[in-house]
Nucleic acid binder design. Sequence first.
RNA 1: GGAGGAGUGGCAGAGCUGGUUUAAUGCACCGGUCUUGAAAACCGGCGUACGAGAAAUCGUACCGGGGGUUCGAAUCCCUCCUCCUCCGCCA
Length: 425
Amino acid sequence: MLEVSFIRNNKNKVLEALEKRRLGKEELAVIDQVIALDDQRKQVQTQLDEMLAERNKLSKEIGQLFKSGKAQEANTMKAKVAELKDKSAGLEEEFKSIKTQLTASLYTIPNVPHSSVPAGSTDEDNEIAQDWDQPLPELDHDALPHWELAKKYNLFNLELGTKITGSGFPLYRGSGAKLQRALINFFLDEAHKAGYEEIIPPLLVNEDTARATGQLPDKEGQMYHAEKDDLYLIPTAEVPVTNIYRDLIISKDDFPIKLTAYTPCFRREAGSYGAHVRGLNRVHQFDKVEIVQLQHPDHSYDTLNEMVKHVEAILQKLELPYRILRLCGGDLGFTSALTFDFEVYSAAQKRWLEVSSVSNFETFQSNRMKLRFKDGKSTRLAHTLNGSALALARIVAALLENNQTSEGIKIPAALQDYTRFDMIK
RNA sequence: GGAGGAGUGGCAGAGCUGGUUUAAUGCACCGGUCUUGAAAACCGGCGUACGAGAAAUCGUACCGGGGGUUCGAAUCCCUCCUCCUCCGCCA
Protein backbone atom coordinates (compact mmCIF):
# COMPACT_ATOMS: atom_id res chain seq x y z
CA MET A 1 0.00 0.00 0.00
CA LEU A 2 1.00 3.59 -0.38
CA GLU A 3 2.52 5.45 2.54
CA VAL A 4 0.35 8.16 4.05
CA SER A 5 3.31 10.53 3.98
CA PHE A 6 3.67 9.91 0.26
CA ILE A 7 -0.01 10.60 -0.33
CA ARG A 8 0.19 13.81 1.69
CA ASN A 9 3.24 15.10 -0.15
CA ASN A 10 2.17 14.05 -3.63
CA LYS A 11 -1.58 14.36 -3.56
CA ASN A 12 -1.99 15.63 -7.10
CA LYS A 13 0.45 13.16 -8.51
CA VAL A 14 -1.43 10.34 -6.79
CA LEU A 15 -4.77 11.58 -8.09
CA GLU A 16 -3.48 11.85 -11.65
CA ALA A 17 -1.94 8.44 -11.41
CA LEU A 18 -5.13 6.86 -10.16
CA GLU A 19 -7.12 8.50 -12.91
CA LYS A 20 -4.83 6.66 -15.27
CA ARG A 21 -6.23 3.50 -13.71
CA ARG A 22 -9.67 4.73 -14.62
CA LEU A 23 -10.86 5.04 -11.06
CA GLY A 24 -14.14 6.89 -10.53
CA LYS A 25 -14.78 10.01 -8.45
CA GLU A 26 -15.82 7.97 -5.44
CA GLU A 27 -12.61 6.02 -5.48
CA LEU A 28 -10.57 9.20 -5.81
CA ALA A 29 -12.35 10.69 -2.80
CA VAL A 30 -10.59 8.17 -0.62
CA ILE A 31 -7.40 10.20 -0.98
CA ASP A 32 -8.95 13.13 0.86
CA GLN A 33 -10.43 10.74 3.42
CA VAL A 34 -7.04 9.31 4.12
CA ILE A 35 -5.50 12.72 4.69
CA ALA A 36 -8.39 13.77 6.93
CA LEU A 37 -8.14 10.58 8.96
CA ASP A 38 -4.42 11.03 9.31
CA ASP A 39 -4.95 14.59 10.59
CA GLN A 40 -7.36 13.23 13.17
CA ARG A 41 -4.95 10.51 14.09
CA LYS A 42 -2.17 12.98 14.78
CA GLN A 43 -4.38 15.20 16.84
CA VAL A 44 -5.69 12.36 18.96
CA GLN A 45 -2.25 10.85 19.37
CA THR A 46 -0.80 14.11 20.63
CA GLN A 47 -3.52 14.36 23.28
CA LEU A 48 -3.26 10.72 24.21
CA ASP A 49 0.52 10.83 24.50
CA GLU A 50 0.34 13.81 26.81
CA MET A 51 -2.20 12.07 28.99
CA LEU A 52 -0.15 8.90 29.19
CA ALA A 53 2.97 10.91 29.99
CA GLU A 54 1.13 12.52 32.87
CA ARG A 55 -0.08 9.16 34.10
CA ASN A 56 3.39 7.66 33.94
CA LYS A 57 4.81 10.59 35.84
CA LEU A 58 2.22 10.41 38.61
CA SER A 59 2.54 6.66 38.92
CA LYS A 60 6.23 7.05 39.53
CA GLU A 61 5.56 9.60 42.21
CA ILE A 62 3.12 7.23 43.88
CA GLY A 63 5.84 4.63 43.99
CA GLN A 64 8.16 7.12 45.66
CA LEU A 65 5.52 8.10 48.20
CA PHE A 66 4.90 4.50 49.19
CA LYS A 67 8.60 3.98 49.59
CA SER A 68 8.95 6.90 51.91
CA GLY A 69 5.93 5.71 53.90
CA LYS A 70 3.51 8.44 52.87
CA ALA A 71 0.65 6.08 52.17
CA GLN A 72 -2.00 8.73 52.80
CA GLU A 73 -0.72 11.07 50.08
CA ALA A 74 -0.18 8.16 47.74
CA ASN A 75 -3.78 7.08 48.03
CA THR A 76 -5.13 10.53 47.20
CA MET A 77 -2.93 10.61 44.17
CA LYS A 78 -4.14 7.19 43.14
CA ALA A 79 -7.66 8.47 42.87
CA LYS A 80 -6.46 11.29 40.68
CA VAL A 81 -4.66 8.97 38.29
CA ALA A 82 -7.65 6.65 38.15
CA GLU A 83 -9.68 9.58 36.90
CA LEU A 84 -7.09 10.36 34.27
CA LYS A 85 -7.21 6.76 33.21
CA ASP A 86 -10.91 6.91 32.41
CA LYS A 87 -10.32 9.81 30.08
CA SER A 88 -7.34 8.26 28.36
CA ALA A 89 -9.22 4.99 27.87
CA GLY A 90 -11.83 6.82 25.79
CA LEU A 91 -9.18 8.55 23.78
CA GLU A 92 -7.39 5.30 23.17
CA GLU A 93 -10.57 3.77 21.80
CA GLU A 94 -10.86 6.68 19.42
CA PHE A 95 -7.23 6.38 18.40
CA LYS A 96 -7.60 2.70 17.59
CA SER A 97 -10.79 3.28 15.68
CA ILE A 98 -9.21 6.00 13.55
CA LYS A 99 -6.23 3.83 12.80
CA THR A 100 -8.47 0.96 11.77
CA GLN A 101 -10.39 3.21 9.40
CA LEU A 102 -7.18 4.65 8.04
CA THR A 103 -5.71 1.25 7.31
CA ALA A 104 -8.93 0.08 5.71
CA SER A 105 -8.91 3.12 3.42
CA LEU A 106 -5.28 2.65 2.52
CA TYR A 107 -5.97 -0.94 1.54
CA THR A 108 -8.40 0.24 -1.13
CA ILE A 109 -5.82 2.41 -2.92
CA PRO A 110 -3.91 0.70 -5.72
CA ASN A 111 -0.31 1.43 -6.60
CA VAL A 112 0.64 4.56 -8.51
CA PRO A 113 1.41 3.59 -12.11
CA HIS A 114 4.85 4.41 -13.47
CA SER A 115 4.99 7.44 -15.80
CA SER A 116 5.53 5.16 -18.80
CA VAL A 117 2.25 3.29 -18.24
CA PRO A 118 -0.06 4.10 -21.17
CA ALA A 119 -3.57 5.39 -20.60
CA GLY A 120 -6.31 2.89 -21.30
CA SER A 121 -9.12 0.87 -19.82
CA THR A 122 -8.87 -2.71 -21.00
CA ASP A 123 -6.38 -5.21 -22.34
CA GLU A 124 -7.11 -3.85 -25.82
CA ASP A 125 -5.38 -0.62 -24.81
CA ASN A 126 -2.14 -2.33 -23.83
CA GLU A 127 0.84 -1.10 -25.77
CA ILE A 128 2.88 -3.54 -27.79
CA ALA A 129 6.35 -2.77 -26.44
CA GLN A 130 8.01 -5.29 -28.69
CA ASP A 131 6.24 -7.05 -31.52
CA TRP A 132 7.14 -10.30 -33.23
CA ASP A 133 8.80 -9.10 -36.41
CA GLN A 134 9.05 -12.42 -38.25
CA PRO A 135 6.29 -14.29 -40.03
CA LEU A 136 4.02 -16.22 -37.70
CA PRO A 137 4.07 -19.99 -38.10
CA GLU A 138 1.39 -21.26 -40.45
CA LEU A 139 0.18 -24.79 -40.00
CA ASP A 140 -1.63 -27.08 -42.38
CA HIS A 141 -5.38 -26.74 -42.37
CA ASP A 142 -5.69 -30.03 -40.53
CA ALA A 143 -3.44 -28.87 -37.66
CA LEU A 144 -4.85 -29.70 -34.24
CA PRO A 145 -5.31 -27.53 -31.17
CA HIS A 146 -3.32 -28.74 -28.16
CA TRP A 147 -6.27 -30.44 -26.48
CA GLU A 148 -6.71 -32.64 -29.55
CA LEU A 149 -2.96 -33.30 -29.68
CA ALA A 150 -3.13 -34.31 -26.02
CA LYS A 151 -5.65 -37.01 -26.90
CA LYS A 152 -3.74 -38.17 -29.96
CA TYR A 153 -0.46 -38.58 -28.08
CA ASN A 154 -1.87 -39.27 -24.59
CA LEU A 155 -0.17 -36.22 -22.99
CA PHE A 156 -2.75 -34.94 -20.57
CA ASN A 157 -6.31 -35.68 -19.68
CA LEU A 158 -8.80 -33.07 -18.56
CA GLU A 159 -11.66 -35.51 -18.03
CA LEU A 160 -9.63 -37.50 -15.53
CA GLY A 161 -8.73 -34.31 -13.71
CA THR A 162 -12.42 -33.49 -13.57
CA LYS A 163 -13.21 -36.95 -12.24
CA ILE A 164 -10.59 -36.72 -9.53
CA THR A 165 -11.03 -33.07 -8.58
CA GLY A 166 -13.14 -30.91 -10.85
CA SER A 167 -12.81 -28.97 -14.06
CA GLY A 168 -9.57 -27.10 -14.62
CA PHE A 169 -7.30 -29.58 -12.88
CA PRO A 170 -5.33 -31.26 -15.64
CA LEU A 171 -3.74 -34.65 -15.22
CA TYR A 172 -0.54 -35.05 -17.23
CA ARG A 173 0.72 -38.46 -18.23
CA GLY A 174 3.43 -40.19 -20.21
CA SER A 175 5.41 -37.84 -22.45
CA GLY A 176 3.15 -35.00 -21.34
CA ALA A 177 4.23 -35.48 -17.71
CA LYS A 178 7.87 -35.77 -18.78
CA LEU A 179 7.60 -32.59 -20.83
CA GLN A 180 6.19 -30.82 -17.81
CA ARG A 181 9.09 -31.96 -15.63
CA ALA A 182 11.62 -31.08 -18.33
CA LEU A 183 10.30 -27.53 -18.63
CA ILE A 184 10.42 -27.01 -14.88
CA ASN A 185 14.04 -28.13 -14.70
CA PHE A 186 14.96 -26.09 -17.75
CA PHE A 187 13.43 -22.93 -16.28
CA LEU A 188 15.06 -23.49 -12.89
CA ASP A 189 18.45 -24.04 -14.49
CA GLU A 190 18.10 -20.84 -16.49
CA ALA A 191 17.25 -18.95 -13.32
CA HIS A 192 20.18 -20.54 -11.52
CA LYS A 193 22.55 -19.47 -14.31
CA ALA A 194 21.19 -15.94 -13.98
CA GLY A 195 22.10 -15.91 -10.29
CA TYR A 196 18.80 -16.71 -8.60
CA GLU A 197 18.78 -18.81 -5.44
CA GLU A 198 16.31 -21.65 -5.60
CA ILE A 199 13.57 -21.85 -2.99
CA ILE A 200 11.00 -24.53 -2.29
CA PRO A 201 8.37 -22.68 -0.29
CA PRO A 202 5.22 -23.83 1.47
CA LEU A 203 2.21 -23.98 -0.83
CA LEU A 204 -0.23 -22.90 1.84
CA VAL A 205 0.13 -19.48 3.41
CA ASN A 206 -1.45 -17.65 6.31
CA GLU A 207 -3.44 -14.44 6.23
CA ASP A 208 -0.53 -12.13 7.12
CA THR A 209 1.48 -13.49 4.22
CA ALA A 210 -1.36 -13.14 1.74
CA ARG A 211 -1.99 -9.60 2.88
CA ALA A 212 1.64 -8.55 2.56
CA THR A 213 1.88 -9.24 -1.16
CA GLY A 214 -1.56 -7.81 -1.86
CA GLN A 215 -3.80 -10.86 -2.29
CA LEU A 216 -5.81 -9.84 0.77
CA PRO A 217 -8.05 -8.10 1.45
CA ASP A 218 -10.57 -8.02 -1.40
CA LYS A 219 -9.03 -10.68 -3.60
CA GLU A 220 -10.11 -13.64 -1.49
CA GLY A 221 -12.08 -14.88 -4.46
CA GLN A 222 -8.93 -15.61 -6.39
CA MET A 223 -7.49 -17.99 -3.82
CA TYR A 224 -8.55 -21.38 -2.50
CA HIS A 225 -9.07 -21.16 1.24
CA ALA A 226 -8.63 -24.03 3.68
CA GLU A 227 -11.10 -22.71 6.22
CA LYS A 228 -10.50 -25.08 9.07
CA ASP A 229 -6.89 -23.95 9.35
CA ASP A 230 -7.43 -20.52 7.82
CA LEU A 231 -4.75 -21.06 5.19
CA TYR A 232 -4.69 -20.11 1.53
CA LEU A 233 -3.35 -22.13 -1.39
CA ILE A 234 -0.84 -19.93 -3.18
CA PRO A 235 -1.88 -18.39 -6.50
CA THR A 236 1.81 -17.81 -7.29
CA ALA A 237 5.19 -18.45 -5.67
CA GLU A 238 5.57 -14.68 -5.39
CA VAL A 239 3.49 -14.85 -2.22
CA PRO A 240 5.57 -17.17 -0.01
CA VAL A 241 8.91 -16.19 -1.57
CA THR A 242 8.60 -12.42 -1.18
CA ASN A 243 7.33 -12.93 2.36
CA ILE A 244 10.64 -14.49 3.36
CA TYR A 245 11.70 -10.89 3.87
CA ARG A 246 8.61 -9.66 5.68
CA ASP A 247 9.44 -7.55 8.77
CA LEU A 248 13.14 -7.46 8.02
CA ILE A 249 15.60 -4.62 7.76
CA ILE A 250 18.40 -5.63 5.43
CA SER A 251 21.60 -3.89 4.46
CA LYS A 252 21.99 -1.85 1.30
CA ASP A 253 24.85 -4.21 0.43
CA ASP A 254 22.47 -7.17 0.32
CA PHE A 255 20.94 -5.93 -2.94
CA PRO A 256 20.05 -7.37 -5.29
CA ILE A 257 18.37 -10.35 -3.66
CA LYS A 258 17.43 -12.83 -6.36
CA LEU A 259 15.18 -15.80 -5.63
CA THR A 260 13.46 -18.35 -7.80
CA ALA A 261 10.94 -21.05 -7.03
CA TYR A 262 9.01 -23.69 -8.84
CA THR A 263 5.54 -24.23 -7.43
CA PRO A 264 2.15 -25.32 -8.57
CA CYS A 265 -0.21 -22.34 -8.59
CA PHE A 266 -3.87 -22.47 -7.63
CA ARG A 267 -6.42 -19.98 -8.91
CA ARG A 268 -10.14 -20.16 -8.60
CA GLU A 269 -10.78 -18.07 -11.72
CA ALA A 270 -14.46 -18.02 -10.90
CA GLY A 271 -16.98 -17.87 -13.68
CA SER A 272 -14.82 -18.37 -16.71
CA TYR A 273 -15.93 -21.11 -19.07
CA GLY A 274 -16.19 -21.25 -22.85
CA ALA A 275 -14.19 -21.72 -26.01
CA HIS A 276 -11.40 -19.32 -25.08
CA VAL A 277 -10.57 -21.26 -21.94
CA ARG A 278 -10.44 -24.71 -23.52
CA GLY A 279 -7.62 -27.11 -22.88
CA LEU A 280 -4.75 -25.59 -20.96
CA ASN A 281 -5.64 -21.99 -21.80
CA ARG A 282 -6.98 -21.36 -18.37
CA VAL A 283 -6.85 -23.89 -15.55
CA HIS A 284 -7.19 -23.85 -11.76
CA GLN A 285 -3.86 -25.56 -11.16
CA PHE A 286 -0.74 -24.95 -13.19
CA ASP A 287 3.00 -25.11 -12.71
CA LYS A 288 5.19 -22.06 -12.77
CA VAL A 289 8.76 -21.02 -12.10
CA GLU A 290 8.80 -17.58 -10.58
CA ILE A 291 11.69 -15.13 -10.25
CA VAL A 292 11.68 -12.56 -7.47
CA GLN A 293 14.07 -9.71 -6.80
CA LEU A 294 14.48 -7.23 -4.00
CA GLN A 295 16.29 -4.14 -5.12
CA HIS A 296 17.41 -0.66 -4.13
CA PRO A 297 14.89 1.95 -5.33
CA ASP A 298 17.51 3.58 -7.52
CA HIS A 299 18.06 0.41 -9.50
CA SER A 300 14.72 -1.35 -9.63
CA TYR A 301 13.86 -0.33 -13.19
CA ASP A 302 17.18 -1.62 -14.46
CA THR A 303 16.32 -4.81 -12.64
CA LEU A 304 12.88 -4.93 -14.25
CA ASN A 305 14.58 -4.64 -17.60
CA GLU A 306 16.99 -7.42 -16.70
CA MET A 307 14.10 -9.67 -15.75
CA VAL A 308 12.34 -8.93 -19.03
CA LYS A 309 15.51 -9.93 -20.89
CA HIS A 310 15.69 -13.13 -18.86
CA VAL A 311 12.19 -14.16 -19.87
CA GLU A 312 12.86 -13.15 -23.44
CA ALA A 313 15.97 -15.32 -23.62
CA ILE A 314 14.02 -18.36 -22.43
CA LEU A 315 11.33 -17.88 -25.05
CA GLN A 316 14.01 -17.57 -27.72
CA LYS A 317 15.57 -20.84 -26.58
CA LEU A 318 12.18 -22.47 -26.81
CA GLU A 319 11.86 -21.05 -30.33
CA LEU A 320 8.42 -19.65 -29.66
CA PRO A 321 7.08 -16.49 -31.36
CA TYR A 322 6.47 -13.93 -28.63
CA ARG A 323 5.60 -10.31 -28.09
CA ILE A 324 5.89 -8.01 -25.10
CA LEU A 325 3.07 -5.80 -23.88
CA ARG A 326 3.30 -2.79 -21.66
CA LEU A 327 0.10 -2.93 -19.64
CA CYS A 328 -2.13 0.13 -19.69
CA GLY A 329 -3.46 1.80 -16.56
CA GLY A 330 -6.78 -0.02 -16.67
CA ASP A 331 -5.24 -3.48 -17.05
CA LEU A 332 -2.40 -2.99 -14.56
CA GLY A 333 -2.57 -5.15 -11.44
CA PHE A 334 -3.62 -3.52 -8.18
CA THR A 335 -0.17 -3.76 -6.62
CA SER A 336 2.00 -3.04 -9.66
CA ALA A 337 3.62 0.17 -10.85
CA LEU A 338 4.72 -1.19 -14.19
CA THR A 339 4.06 -4.57 -15.78
CA PHE A 340 5.25 -6.21 -18.97
CA ASP A 341 3.23 -9.18 -20.15
CA PHE A 342 4.67 -11.78 -22.46
CA GLU A 343 2.48 -13.56 -24.97
CA VAL A 344 3.40 -16.49 -27.16
CA TYR A 345 1.67 -17.35 -30.38
CA SER A 346 -0.24 -20.58 -30.35
CA ALA A 347 -0.40 -21.47 -34.01
CA ALA A 348 -3.33 -23.87 -34.16
CA GLN A 349 -5.60 -21.66 -32.08
CA LYS A 350 -4.18 -18.69 -33.97
CA ARG A 351 -4.04 -16.57 -30.85
CA TRP A 352 -1.60 -15.03 -28.43
CA LEU A 353 -1.45 -16.58 -24.97
CA GLU A 354 -0.16 -14.78 -21.89
CA VAL A 355 2.72 -16.77 -20.42
CA SER A 356 4.52 -14.30 -18.22
CA SER A 357 3.98 -11.12 -16.31
CA VAL A 358 6.97 -9.16 -15.05
CA SER A 359 6.32 -6.35 -12.60
CA ASN A 360 7.91 -3.72 -10.44
CA PHE A 361 5.87 -3.08 -7.30
CA GLU A 362 8.22 -0.38 -6.07
CA THR A 363 7.40 0.04 -2.36
CA PHE A 364 3.78 -1.10 -2.53
CA GLN A 365 4.44 -4.59 -1.19
CA SER A 366 7.42 -3.65 0.96
CA ASN A 367 5.34 -1.07 2.80
CA ARG A 368 2.74 -3.70 3.59
CA MET A 369 5.31 -6.20 4.72
CA LYS A 370 7.68 -3.70 6.36
CA LEU A 371 10.59 -4.81 4.22
CA ARG A 372 13.25 -2.14 4.64
CA PHE A 373 16.95 -1.55 4.25
CA LYS A 374 19.57 0.62 5.89
CA ASP A 375 20.87 3.38 3.69
CA GLY A 376 23.44 5.12 5.85
CA LYS A 377 21.49 6.42 8.81
CA SER A 378 18.07 6.26 7.25
CA THR A 379 15.82 3.22 6.99
CA ARG A 380 13.96 3.00 3.69
CA LEU A 381 11.50 0.69 1.99
CA ALA A 382 12.99 -1.67 -0.57
CA HIS A 383 11.57 -2.28 -4.02
CA THR A 384 10.13 -5.70 -4.86
CA LEU A 385 9.83 -7.20 -8.32
CA ASN A 386 8.76 -10.50 -9.74
CA GLY A 387 8.06 -12.29 -12.94
CA SER A 388 6.99 -15.63 -14.32
CA ALA A 389 9.90 -17.44 -15.89
CA LEU A 390 7.76 -19.16 -16.94
CA ALA A 391 4.20 -20.38 -16.51
CA LEU A 392 3.95 -23.88 -17.90
CA ALA A 393 0.47 -24.71 -19.04
CA ARG A 394 0.22 -22.23 -21.88
CA ILE A 395 3.83 -22.75 -22.91
CA VAL A 396 2.95 -26.40 -23.32
CA ALA A 397 -0.08 -25.48 -25.37
CA ALA A 398 2.01 -23.37 -27.76
CA LEU A 399 4.86 -25.88 -27.95
CA LEU A 400 2.53 -28.71 -28.86
CA GLU A 401 0.60 -26.77 -31.44
CA ASN A 402 3.50 -24.99 -33.14
CA ASN A 403 5.75 -28.01 -33.39
CA GLN A 404 3.30 -30.60 -34.67
CA THR A 405 4.32 -32.44 -37.82
CA SER A 406 2.99 -35.45 -39.61
CA GLU A 407 5.66 -37.54 -37.83
CA GLY A 408 4.93 -36.24 -34.34
CA ILE A 409 5.64 -33.24 -32.14
CA LYS A 410 9.18 -31.88 -32.28
CA ILE A 411 10.94 -30.90 -29.06
CA PRO A 412 13.03 -27.70 -29.27
CA ALA A 413 16.78 -28.39 -29.17
CA ALA A 414 17.27 -26.57 -25.86
CA LEU A 415 14.76 -28.86 -24.16
CA GLN A 416 16.04 -32.16 -25.50
CA ASP A 417 18.71 -32.43 -22.78
CA TYR A 418 15.84 -32.38 -20.31
CA THR A 419 13.24 -34.54 -22.04
CA ARG A 420 15.80 -37.07 -23.38
CA PHE A 421 13.63 -37.41 -26.48
CA ASP A 422 13.43 -35.17 -29.52
CA MET A 423 9.98 -36.08 -30.74
CA ILE A 424 6.65 -37.02 -29.22
CA LYS A 425 5.22 -39.84 -31.32
C1' G B 1 -2.73 -36.67 20.12
C1' G B 2 -0.75 -36.84 25.77
C1' A B 3 2.81 -34.72 29.64
C1' G B 4 6.36 -31.05 30.91
C1' G B 5 9.59 -26.62 29.81
C1' A B 6 10.56 -22.08 27.29
C1' G B 7 9.75 -17.50 24.21
C1' U B 8 13.60 -10.55 26.32
C1' G B 9 16.91 -5.47 21.53
C1' G B 10 21.48 -8.32 15.29
C1' C B 11 23.24 -12.59 18.54
C1' A B 12 24.14 -14.42 23.57
C1' G B 13 21.99 -13.56 28.13
C1' A B 14 20.28 -11.08 33.24
C1' G B 15 15.78 -9.22 35.18
C1' C B 16 10.37 -12.38 36.19
C1' U B 17 9.01 -12.16 45.44
C1' G B 18 5.34 -5.54 40.22
C1' G B 19 7.70 0.84 41.43
C1' U B 20 15.48 4.91 39.76
C1' U B 21 15.71 -1.10 34.82
C1' U B 22 15.11 5.29 31.05
C1' A B 23 15.70 -3.57 29.81
C1' A B 24 22.00 -5.01 33.20
C1' U B 25 26.18 -7.29 30.95
C1' G B 26 28.96 -9.57 26.97
C1' C B 27 29.62 -10.25 21.64
C1' A B 28 28.90 -8.10 16.94
C1' C B 29 28.62 -3.35 14.49
C1' C B 30 29.83 2.21 13.76
C1' G B 31 32.91 6.62 15.13
C1' G B 32 37.24 8.33 17.82
C1' U B 33 42.13 8.13 20.65
C1' C B 34 46.72 5.48 20.28
C1' U B 35 49.77 3.20 15.91
C1' U B 36 53.90 3.71 9.95
C1' G B 37 49.47 0.40 9.19
C1' A B 38 46.70 -3.28 11.72
C1' A B 39 45.51 -5.84 16.21
C1' A B 40 44.91 -5.01 21.36
C1' A B 41 43.49 -1.40 24.86
C1' C B 42 40.65 2.84 26.06
C1' C B 43 36.53 6.55 25.10
C1' G B 44 31.85 7.33 22.81
C1' G B 45 27.75 5.64 19.92
C1' C B 46 24.62 1.61 18.79
C1' G B 47 16.41 -0.82 18.07
C1' U B 48 11.60 0.19 15.49
C1' A B 49 7.29 3.10 14.74
C1' C B 50 4.52 7.34 15.64
C1' G B 51 3.68 12.33 17.76
C1' A B 52 5.33 17.57 19.25
C1' G B 53 9.26 21.03 17.64
C1' A B 54 12.73 25.45 13.01
C1' A B 55 16.25 22.61 15.61
C1' A B 56 18.53 20.72 19.82
C1' U B 57 15.47 17.69 22.00
C1' C B 58 11.23 15.80 24.41
C1' G B 59 7.08 12.42 24.63
C1' U B 60 4.27 7.73 23.62
C1' A B 61 4.10 2.58 22.31
C1' C B 62 6.69 -2.05 21.64
C1' C B 63 10.31 -7.74 26.26
C1' G B 64 6.06 -14.07 20.91
C1' G B 65 0.40 -12.17 19.52
C1' G B 66 -4.19 -10.56 21.88
C1' G B 67 -6.89 -9.42 26.35
C1' G B 68 -7.12 -8.54 31.78
C1' U B 69 -5.67 -7.08 37.08
C1' U B 70 -3.18 -2.46 39.09
C1' C B 71 -2.07 4.29 40.43
C1' G B 72 2.03 1.50 37.96
C1' A B 73 3.35 -4.93 34.32
C1' A B 74 9.18 -7.74 30.93
C1' U B 75 7.56 -9.20 35.97
C1' C B 76 0.83 -11.35 38.18
C1' C B 77 -3.78 -13.67 35.59
C1' C B 78 -6.46 -15.51 31.02
C1' U B 79 -6.07 -16.94 25.96
C1' C B 80 -3.79 -17.98 21.33
C1' C B 81 0.77 -18.96 18.57
C1' U B 82 5.66 -20.86 18.13
C1' C B 83 9.89 -23.66 19.73
C1' C B 84 12.31 -27.49 22.88
C1' U B 85 12.18 -32.35 25.79
C1' C B 86 9.69 -37.07 26.67
C1' C B 87 5.67 -40.56 25.15
C1' G B 88 2.30 -42.23 21.22
C1' C B 89 1.40 -42.36 15.84
C1' C B 90 3.66 -41.89 11.03
C1' A B 91 6.19 -40.93 5.12
